[in-house]
Design a protein around this nucleic acid. Structure first.
Lengths: 133, 133
DNA sequence: CTTTACCTTCTAGTAACTGGAAGGACTATC
DNA sequence: GATAGTCCTTCCAGTTACTAGAAGGTAAAG
């Protein structure tokens, strides 16, 4: 199977697959003509990668997960650890975004949004630090 | 006021202030010795930038907001538009993160997390696409 | 035999900084 | 006046995870 067929099967662009190979996340066999060849093993790993990335795991976390995946002597506790710390990171990001959203919503509500220049949003953003609170 | 004093006042690292100048977000006067000099106007704009960035506005949105801030003939509706579309983006990100979190939590719950290799998390991540659903 | 579509590698660009090197300037001390 | 230490300058490189595009080889279709 060539790269674009593999790409179609696992839902990852060819460019991205080459990139994953370049950074050593996966490897590939080569045909006589130099083309990359993908079979079951590679397709499994690419599928794994696509799913992990779509769950927001960083490339480095994916590297750890793939190593665990490939290790028949792994402890599932190690996998769970990686997943749990990722959930913790997600929770942090969600909290941060919610904080932003809350502040912004208040500002938006206070702004009439008409054709006049007076704007509480701009006022708040430029308020000197010593008047903050 | 030199750059590191300004940095302390507005809470933005000197490096970042130079970067903002490099990309044309702000400008600065120079002293005879070539040092950047910051006064009220620049401090206001840096404060503005710091707040906007901490609310998650992109640099390009900050550029728009600064232009509106500097325009005495602006319409507050334009500011409100920028803010509202940013809230929409935040909502998208939150939804995405919540989706990830939900999927991950289920996987984590299904994993015993002991010293055995059997791991539903890895199983799910590597499950072939034709068995998905 | 030509066109089209695929493959290869390499380079560069994205967002928003951050770190570090090389060298000039200011301040404090001896 | 010499020296040490801290600040300032510019420029270059690295970060994350790709993505776009160029130049050129290969394969399949008509």
């Amino acid at each position: 199977m060539n790269i674009s067929q593999a790409a179609a099967v696992v839902g990852i662009p060819p460019k991205t697959i080459r990139y994953y190979e370049e950074i050593g996340l996966i490897s590939s066999q080569r045909a006589e003509n130099g083309y990359r060849v993908y079979e079951d093993r590679e397709l499994h790993m690419l599928t794994f990668l696509g799913r992990a990335r779509s769950l927001g795991f960083t490339i480095e976390s994916c590297r750890s997960l793939l190593a665990l995946y490939a290790d028949p002597n792994r402890a599932s506790a190690n996998v769970k650890d990686v997943a749990e710390s990722h959930v913790a990171e997600i929770d942090l990001k969600i909290a941060e975004l919610k904080g932003m959203r809350s502040t912004l919503s208040k500002l938006i509500k206070s702004c009439r949004g008409d054709d006049m220049p007076d704007c509480p949003i701009l006022n708040e953003l430029s308020r000197p630090f010593n008047k903050q609170g």
